[in-house]
């Protein structure tokens, strides 16, 4: 499986995805300038912008790499040659997923380093009211990367179901948006304001809350930006949630993929 992960990584690098990220990352240079427009929170604004930019790049990566990885292999008939090797479909699927996830991790580390540099610079010029907590920032980026790895698993799940790339790409984007608000909807449902809703709608919404991935849980941007404390228990629970949810998605994907006919 290591070799299929390696092949996947090589493919992403040789498709010049990394160079693309580096070019996009040049925008980091603009962040201190934009952030200096803030009246009261220059460092906080540089953090906001850096973290948002990392999130955005990782989102694009996970949607497009995750959504097209399997589709491209099947479309270009790479699967008929690779699956003709003594390589089980599960291992192939996991290898492709692992390679893509690893790339997102690498991108997060590199972009994270750029963000550190930007924030360090901003905070040196305009010392913030509250010192930047670097470990929180690192954890925020790490959980951001985990969130997008979870999203890649969603994209892979759609790829095993569909033969085109529309469902993987657009389905993944929809799940991403929906998974970002489930927590809000859930909280609304539990508040007295939702009294007027019919119980059926409530039931469906609650069902979706448990079914859809909860991306909101991975968002620690506020903690990183304003130096709010993180709770270890919450982090561990989120980590466990990540492992279990990715496990479920990949298992179902593998089960579907094994049954798939490679015409």
């Amino acid at each position: 499986m290591a070799s299929i992960i390696l092949i996947t990584l090589k493919g992403i690098f040789r498709d010049r995805v990394f160079q693309g990220i580096m070019v996009t990352a040049l925008a980091f240079l603009l962040i201190p300038v934009i952030a200096s427009l803030s009246m009261r929170q220059v460092t906080e604004l540089s953090l906001t912008l850096s973290l948002s930019m990392i999130s955005f790049i990782l989102l694009l990566l996970s949607v497009f790499l995750g959504g097209t990885s399997l589709w491209k292999d099947i479309e270009r008939r790479y699967t008929s040659s690779v699956l003709g090797l003594p390589l089980s479909r599960q291992r192939y699927l996991l290898g492709r997923f692992g390679g893509t996830a690893l790339f997102v991790m690498i991108a997060a580390v590199v972009l994270g380093a750029a963000a550190f540099a930007v924030v360090l610079y901003s905070s040196a010029i305009y010392p913030p009211e509250r010192p930047v907590i670097w470990s929180t920032m690192g954890l925020c980026i790490l959980f951001d990367a985990l969130k997008y790895i979870l999203l890649i698993a969603v994209a892979f799940f759609f790829s095993t179901v569909s033969t085109s790339f529309f469902l993987p790409v657009f389905g993944t984007i929809s799940i991403f948006l929906a998974g970002g608000v489930t927590q809000q909807v859930y909280e609304y449902l539990r508040s007295p304001a939702s009294k007027s809703l019919s119980p059926v709608v409530k039931q469906i919404a609650a069902g979706l809350y448990y079914l859809l991935p909860n991306f909101g849980a991975f968002d620690f941007k506020v903690n990183a930006i304003y130096g709010l404390p993180l709770h270890v228990e919450g982090l561990l629970l989120t980590l466990a949630y990540f492992v279990v949810y990715v496990g479920i998605l990949l298992s179902i994907s593998a089960a579907i993929f094994i049954r798939r006919e490679m015409r």
């Binding site: 604004l45 906001t48 973290l51 948002s52 948006l177 608000v181 809000q184 991306f215 968002d219 941007k221």
Partner: peptide
């Protein structure tokens, strides 16, 4: 806006202020 902002709420807020 909150729904569409996804995990960029802080960013959208900052852009509104800007």
């Amino acid at each position: 806006l909150k729904s569409v902002a996804a995990d960029h709420k802080e960013m959208v807020a900052a852009s509104l202020v800007m």
